[in-house]
Every structure is written in C-alpha cells, then in structure tokens.
Amino acid sequence: MTGIATLPTTRDEDWRYSDGEYLAAASPDVVNHWRTLEVPAGETRSEHTFHASGHASGEEVDGMVDRLRVHVGKGGRFEAFKTIAGGKYARVEIEVTLEEGAHFEFGGVTLGGEDKVQEFVTRTIHAHPNATSNQVVRAVQWGQSTGNFLGRIEVARDAQKTDAAQNFRAILLEKGASANTKPELEIFADDVLCAHGAAIGQLDEQASYYMAARGIPPEIARKLLIQAFIGDAFEAIADDAERERMLEDTLANLNVEAV
C-alpha cells in the first residue's frame, strides 16, 4: 500500500515556529522531500548556499523548504554555510549522522524584514566515538519578521569522546521583530563535551556610542556592528575569498531601512 504524504502543522513540535499559512497551502511532496548526501570516509564535502528566493520549484505559495540528510563516514567532514534572506517563509533543515572521528560544521544566518519567517532546523546524530560538531547561527531581524533556530544533538551510548557545540544569537533591529530558539541535548554517553548557548537582544549601544564618539556616522556604525555579528557564522570557512563572498552577499540583502 502506498502511503499518502501529509503536511506538518505548527502543532508538530519541530514545526512549532513555522508559517502556518504556508504549511496549509504547500504541496506535501515539496515539504516532505529530502535530499541525501553521502560523505565517504576521510573525505570532505561542503555546501555554501544563499537562499534569496522564497519559491520552491513547482510551488505557487511564497515559501521554501530545503531538507537534507547527510551521512558522514569515518574521519570525514561535512560543512554547510547558509544564508536565508528571501521569501515570506523559508526553512533549511539538515540531519547529519556522524561515524567515528567525523565532523559537522554549520554556520547559518537569517536576514529578514516585513513579516518573513526564516528558520534553521538541525539534528546532529553522534552515533560513534570521537566525532565532533559545531554550529553557529546568527539572526538579524527587523519589521515584523521572525528568525528561528531549532537544534537537536543526539549522542548514542557508545559515542564516547563526543565534542558537540551549538550557539545561537539574534539581533532585533526593531520592536516588532522576534526570534525563537529551541536547543535540545539527548546524551546517553558519559564521557562527552556538549554545550549550547543562546542570546537575543539589540545592537550593542555601548559600541555604537564608542564609534559615534570617533566620528563614524550612525548608519555606518550599525552596519559595521551587524557585519561583525553575522561574520561569526562564516568564520570557519577556510577559503578567505569564499568567506568574503558569503559575507558580502549577505550584507547586500540588509535592508537600508534596517540600518
């Protein structure tokens, strides 16, 4: 018997902060589609993606869902650096399973105004010993927009010497903007290092005052502070040119009214 694809709703825990209107109107085939990637043992694979459009292929509603499952072989490495800047609703979801000694590196930025809802959802499965993972997500929101990060780390009983970390920070440039985070740690091993951190606030007024006192115009000062803030998400990109490209493309979508 063939199963019938159903749509998630905001009552589902993993979709609790999503756009309910998009989910009600979207195609189940699009929302439930997963891409897959196999990283061979000892090798490195990476994705550097800028999501500027809100329309998925074949969709009429303004929204985008990109879901990726990755299996990283022993001693392998998977890197994903992504910016979400377009569309009324955009969700990037990554599920990674790590073999022994493998590594997962993730850097993500949401950049949204108006009433956009943008979110990263990750599930990192440490299935074997000595694997590592690091996730850095930054959200810059203004207008009535929302930036979300749901990050789940699972450590199996035999996955000793796991070292996993995730960090989320959000800057709300206007009062109507918001951000949500839901970090989860499920640990069954006893010799591990697992950490998460989260902070949501406004731009550092002290830093703005310091820059203004040295003659830097307020709009330039704000943009420099935002640049430094989102730069954290791309710090682990080894190639200098690629790191600069990701940063420049992201900053180019920073609404002038927001700064």
Results as ranks from 00 to 15, higher is better:
residue 62 D to R: 07
residue 62 D to T: 08
residue 63 G to I: 07
residue 63 G to Y: 07
residue 63 G to M: 10
residue 63 G to S: 10
residue 65 V to M: 02
residue 65 V to A: 02
residue 66 D to G: 00
residue 66 D to E: 15
residue 67 R to Q: 14
residue 67 R to F: 13
residue 70 V to W: 07
residue 70 V to K: 05
residue 70 V to M: 10
residue 72 V to M: 02
residue 72 V to G: 00
residue 73 G to W: 14
residue 73 G to I: 14
residue 73 G to H: 15
residue 73 G to M: 13
residue 73 G to A: 14
residue 75 G to K: 05
residue 77 R to G: 01
residue 78 F to K: 06
residue 78 F to A: 08
residue 78 F to R: 08
residue 79 E to P: 02
residue 81 F to V: 11
residue 81 F to G: 15
residue 82 K to R: 14
residue 82 K to W: 03
residue 82 K to S: 12
residue 83 T to I: 04
residue 83 T to G: 05
residue 83 T to C: 05
residue 84 I to K: 05
residue 86 G to A: 09
residue 87 G to W: 03
residue 87 G to Q: 09
residue 88 K to T: 13
residue 88 K to Y: 02
residue 89 Y to G: 01
residue 89 Y to D: 00
residue 89 Y to W: 14
residue 89 Y to Q: 03
residue 91 R to Y: 00
residue 91 R to I: 02
residue 91 R to P: 01
residue 91 R to G: 00
residue 92 V to T: 14
residue 92 V to Q: 14
residue 93 E to A: 14
residue 94 I to C: 02
residue 94 I to R: 05
residue 94 I to K: 02
residue 94 I to D: 01
residue 95 E to G: 10
residue 95 E to D: 12
residue 95 E to A: 14
residue 96 V to I: 13
residue 97 T to Y: 00
residue 97 T to P: 01
residue 97 T to E: 12
residue 98 L to P: 02
residue 98 L to S: 04
residue 99 E to N: 08
residue 99 E to F: 02
residue 100 E to W: 01
residue 100 E to S: 14
residue 100 E to A: 11
residue 101 G to V: 05
residue 102 A to M: 08
residue 102 A to K: 03
residue 103 H to I: 10
residue 103 H to K: 11
residue 104 F to A: 11
residue 104 F to N: 05
residue 105 E to W: 01
residue 106 F to C: 13
residue 107 G to C: 11
residue 107 G to E: 09
residue 108 G to N: 06
residue 108 G to T: 04
residue 108 G to C: 05
residue 108 G to E: 05
residue 108 G to A: 08
residue 109 V to Q: 03
residue 109 V to I: 11
residue 109 V to T: 04
residue 109 V to L: 04
residue 110 T to N: 12
residue 111 L to P: 08
residue 111 L to G: 06
residue 111 L to N: 08
residue 111 L to S: 09
residue 111 L to Y: 09
residue 112 G to Y: 07
residue 112 G to T: 10
residue 113 G to M: 05
residue 113 G to W: 01
residue 113 G to E: 13
residue 113 G to N: 13
residue 114 E to I: 03
residue 115 D to R: 13
residue 115 D to T: 12
residue 116 K to P: 00
residue 116 K to T: 00
residue 118 Q to K: 11
residue 118 Q to P: 01
residue 118 Q to E: 10
residue 118 Q to G: 06
residue 119 E to C: 06
residue 119 E to K: 04
residue 120 F to N: 01
residue 120 F to R: 03
residue 122 T to A: 12
residue 122 T to P: 06
residue 122 T to D: 06
residue 123 R to L: 11
residue 123 R to M: 08
residue 124 T to P: 03
residue 124 T to S: 08
residue 124 T to V: 15
residue 124 T to F: 05
residue 124 T to W: 01
residue 125 I to G: 03
residue 125 I to W: 10
residue 125 I to R: 14
residue 126 H to W: 15
residue 126 H to V: 12
residue 127 A to P: 07
residue 127 A to G: 08
residue 127 A to S: 12
residue 127 A to Q: 11
residue 127 A to L: 08
residue 128 H to M: 14
residue 128 H to P: 02
residue 129 P to C: 06
residue 130 N to S: 13
residue 131 A to P: 04
residue 131 A to G: 13
residue 131 A to S: 15
residue 132 T to M: 10
residue 133 S to C: 10
residue 133 S to Y: 09
